[in-house]
Design a protein around this nucleic acid. Structure first.
Length: 860
RNA sequence: GCCGAGGUGGCGAAACUGGCAGACGCACGAGACUUAAAAUCUCGUGACCCUUCGGGUCGUGCGGGUUCGAUUCCCGCCCUCGGCACCA
């Protein structure tokens, strides 16, 4: 057994860091700052090794940056509102706060046992009124600006969670949390106008060059910008000519469509309405509905929402019997209702151009509707032009407009802009941009969230709670009986208030905010966490912000990471932040799997960090999770891998503790020292080469795994060096070094390498390295120690090995002076016997010499 | 269908700007130490072939191309994973 005792070492240093408030920071104008942030935690109960990996990546970067002289902000906190707490309260007949605070206490203990260098002084939980009052404050600012508004709308309702979900929280038609099929419901809801910022959010993506391409793509898809045009088709009066319009009739009705292909509009042979389109009900008179169209509409609307959204339903439609006028051709076209047209996208109505849209084409063929070609591909061979009657598929490619009136002959490249302009000039349309992104519904009919600070007054309407009355605190008691209306609605002393405007009795809003509001700006609050006068001091955020390095799971690519970008822009418009983007660099860490599956309690494959820590120590766990693969990749948990990391740390322990008594003072830099022999110079070279590699791997590359392997190589080399120079590292322990004092040169070279090793390893395994650093005779801890300095003069080799190829195949390796000239290298290569054996009897056509890299001899 | 990321030994991976493929680790094998085992230390470990130290051939998903030289660049495929998707 080794005398490496992680339990004792880790306790000692964790206590010391806590006593010294070692990682708290203050603004220091003029000193470079670095804001390193991991996504804060939902206090679900227990951290597992997947969380640990996330936090380790942040901790390695934060500790390294600190040693490199940066003023590092590395905070942590809790995303503490949310449904699981409320569900647990219902189940346990307790209060959500109890469950939440218990979990936070437990998880905080777990994180502290990992020795993460958080500024715990800045910790907060979003369920504290001191935090969520600023959610309310911000909501009111958005309300004033029309960015927060209330409207009745069809929303995504999760029957299981008994609440509304944002569009982003519906995954494959189910609830993102419980998977239960989402239903449509008509409710009055609060929305945040994120669409106001759609263009800015999309354009900003172009400048996020330190974000993973995957996340940017997902955000682009989610925002879903389409350029096209809106065109209005006038509805023809109903019934035979001369018949009187019914009262409230639709003589002036118009159908507005959105299209990305206005250049095909002369080929629009019918118009399709969503079943929910308001005109549909007007077109179908219930009293005289001989064909039972109303029933068909209802059948369409009743279709499974998921199937309808994913296209799993058979495309069907029917003729309303009404017609509208194509404003470009002046011709009437029939109006149909189709089950695949979505009310919530665009205008809920589309023009159908079967010749140039595959879906329209199939629909037209199914129902015998006309197909008119208005785009002819440019065919250099002069083949037969397309014919609507004979086509077996739509032509959606580029070409030249045909049968399109004054636009005939224009190209599909130019026509759309011209035709949109024409539509605008003639007053029936305009160029338009359509987004897939919708406004963010934040109303939740649940208790455990931020109360929305609004009062409903019958006389005055929606009244904001005055700023002076903030926070609107969650009432402490509430009945957690189960499902139904918001629990807050059942607390009279919360609901019954007086109108701040007229003073008459009024009702308080009982919805709470989506918890994603909480997480959309928490990174600013860390900068100024105890401010009682405002959300944060802009000057403080100006110093720390934006977040330089943000680390978290890719599952937040479109939820949290779009909302935060949105809030950043809102704060900027409020004059509170001075940057456009909140997170300069984003790293999405891979998940930790076990037996090929995500760890979960239900699968019973959770690896508990506490168990690993008690067996191998936090340092071994930290090292394993950073070494096993690049941070972005998912990893498969293996116990043997963790054991391997523990073995390595034992090796480091033995190396440093046994060698320490014999170490001299480190060499004072310079070019290797003329008095040193080859082995000593080689060790110095290796040490400095490792400094170069590890430094670059950590910053900026964040390749934590290769940084560790470089350190392992250095340790291997140090073992070989010690073995060759009489420092006994192997067993038995009693026969350690120190018995024979080392020659001063050997001791000083060893010290230099060992101290570089300890410092560079310390971000990964801080407890072990602090202990070793102390044993090496340094006071003040590693925080005071600078990152080792790379000296190119020392790293420079005096001899190098150059591979020699013949026709691209490796045939020999030459050991030559590092500064060898091209000519000398060339002749040395040609003189090599192995080379001559392969060139014998052949003509040497060419010799490629790449300085310091390789020689390739081309022989024929 | 569209967009993105990938495919390298038994396994996790490395190769940063076109220059020795497989560093480092896991697993496995051999040796040293030991009464023995564990631990530790040292060595070996892509495949195939000739086998004599040693040498040869093949090898980074598949097929082509560019190049003195390709895991890396280009063209065409196949597969895996992720996102979006009746979005007009």
């Amino acid at each position: 057994m080794s005398d490496y005792d992680p339990q004792a070492i880790e306790k000692k240093w964790q206590r010391r860091w806590a006593d010294e408030r070692a990682f708290e920071v203050a603004e220091e104008p003029g000193r470079p700052k670095y804001y390193c942030l991991v996504m804060f935690a939902y206090p679900s109960g227990h951290a597992h090794v997947g969380h640990v990996r996330n936090y380790m990546i942040g901790d390695v970067i934060a500790r390294m940056k600190r040693m490199r002289g940066f003023n590092v902000l590395h905070p942590f906190g809790w995303d503490a509102f949310g449904l699981p707490a409320e569900n647990a309260a219902i189940k346990n007949r307790s209060h959500p706060e109890t469950w939440t605070l218990d979990n936070i206490a437990h998880m905080k203990g777990q994180l502290q046992r990992l020795g993460i260098s958080y500024a715990w002084e800045r910790e907060f939980a979003t369920c504290e009124a001191a935090y969520y009052r600023w959610n309310q404050w911000l909501f009111l600012r958005m309300f004033e600006r029309g960015l927060a508004y209330r409207r009745r709308s069809t929303v995504n309702w999760c029957p299981d969670c008994a609440t509304v979900l944002a569009n982003e929280q519906v995954v494959d038609g189910g609830c993102w949390r419980c998977g239960y099929a989402v239903e449509p419901r008509d409710l009055d809801q609060w929305f945040l106008r994120i669409t106001e910022y759609a263009d800015g959010l999309l354009d900003g993506i172009e400048r996020l060059d330190e974000w993973p391409a995957k996340v940017l793509t997902m955000q682009r898809n989610w925002i879903g910008r389409s350029e096209g045009a809106r065109v209005r088709f006038a509805v023809e009066p109903a019934g035979p000519a001369g018949e009187e319009e019914p009262p409230g009739g639709d003589a002036a009705a118009e159908i507005e469509v959105f299209t990305t292909r206005i250049d095909t509009i002369f080929g629009a042979t019918f118009v399709l309405l969503a079943p929910e389109h308001p005109l549909v009900a007007r077109f179908i008179d219930e009293a005289s509905d001989p064909d039972g169209l109303r029933k068909r509409v209802q059948a369409f609307r009743a279709l499974d929402r998921t199937d309808r959204l994913t296209g799993a339903v058979e495309k069907e439609g029917f003729d309303t019997g009404r017609r509208c006028i194509n404003p470009f051709t002046g011709r009437p076209v029939p109006i149909w209702v189709a089950n695949f047209v979505l009310a919530e996208y665009g205008t809920g109505a589309v023009m159908a151009v079967p010749a140039h849209d595959q879906r329209d084409f199939e629909f037209a063929r199914k129902y015998g509707l006309p197909v008119e070609v208005v785009i002819q591909p440019e065919d250099p061979d002069g083949g037969a032009p397309l014919d609507g009657a004979a086509m077996d598929a739509a032509y959606a490619g580029p070409g030249v407009l045909a049968g399109s009136g004054e636009f005939t002959g224009r190209s599909t490249a130019d026509a759309p802009a011209e035709m949109a302009r024409a539509a605008e000039d003639r007053g029936f349309g305009r160029a338009a941009v359509q987004f897939r992104l919708k406004d963010w519904g934040i109303s939740r009919q649940r208790y455990w969230g931020t109360p929305i600070p609004i009062i409903h007054c019958e006389g005055c309407g929606l009244q904001p709670v005055p700023d002076a009355d903030l926070p609107v605190e969650l009432p402490k008691v509430a009945e957690f009986s189960g499902r139904g209306d918001s629990p807050l609605a059942q607390i009279p002393e919360f609901v019954e208030v007086t109108c701040p405007s007229c003073g008459r009795p009024a009702r308080r809003e009982t919805d709470t905010m989506d918890t994603f509001v909480d997480s959309s700006w928490y990174f600013y609050r860390y900068c100024d966490p105890t401010n009682t006068g405002r959300a944060f001091d802009p000057a403080t955020v100006s110093y720390w912000g934006p977040v330089d390095f943000y680390i978290g799971g890719v599952e937040h690519a479109i939820l949290h990471l779009i909302y935060s970008r949105f809030f950043c822009r809102v704060f900027k418009d409020l004059g509170m932040v001075d940057h456009d983007e909140p997170f300069t660099r984003l790293l999405t860490q891979g998940m930790v799997l076990r037996d090929g599956a995500v760890m979960s309690k239900s699968k019973g494959n959770v690896v508990d960090p506490d168990e690993m820590i008690s067996t191998f120590g936090a340092d071994a766990l930290r090292l394993y999770e950073t070494f096993v693969a690049p941070p972005e990749k998912e990893i498969e948990w293996t116990d043997s891998g963790l054991e391997g990391s523990f073995r390595f740390l034992t090796r480091v322990w033995r190396l440093v503790t046994r060698a320490a008594p014999a170490l001299g003072t480190a060499p004072a830099g310079g070019a290797g020292g003329p008095g040193l022999d080859a082995a000593h110079r080689a060790l110095r070279r290796k040490a400095h080469d490792t400094i170069r590699r590890v430094s670059a791997d950590l910053d900026p590359r964040a390749h934590l795994n290769t940084a560790v392997s470089a350190l392992m190589e250095l340790v291997n080399e140090l073992y070989a060096f010690c073995d060759a120079h009489g420092v006994k590292l192997g067993q038995p322990a009693a026969a350690g070094a120190g018995a024979d004092p080392l020659p001063p040169a050997t001791g000083s070279v060893l010290r230099e390498a060992v101290e570089a090793l300890v410092r560079m390893l310390s971000p990964f395994t801080p407890h072990l390295c602090e202990e070793l650093w102390e044993r090496l005779g340094h006071a003040g801890g590693l925080r005071a120690a600078a990152w080792p300095e790379f000296d190119p003069a020392v790293a420079k080799a005096d001899e190098i090995v150059v591979p020699v190829q013949v026709n691209g195949k490796l045939r020999a390796r030459l050991t030559v002076p590092a500064d060898i000239g091209e000519e000398d290298l060339r002749s040395a290569a040609l003189a090599e016997s192995a080379v001559q054996a392969h060139t014998a009897g052949r003509e040497i056509a060419r010799v490629v010499v790449v300085r310091r890299k390789l020689v390739n001899i081309v022989a024929r």
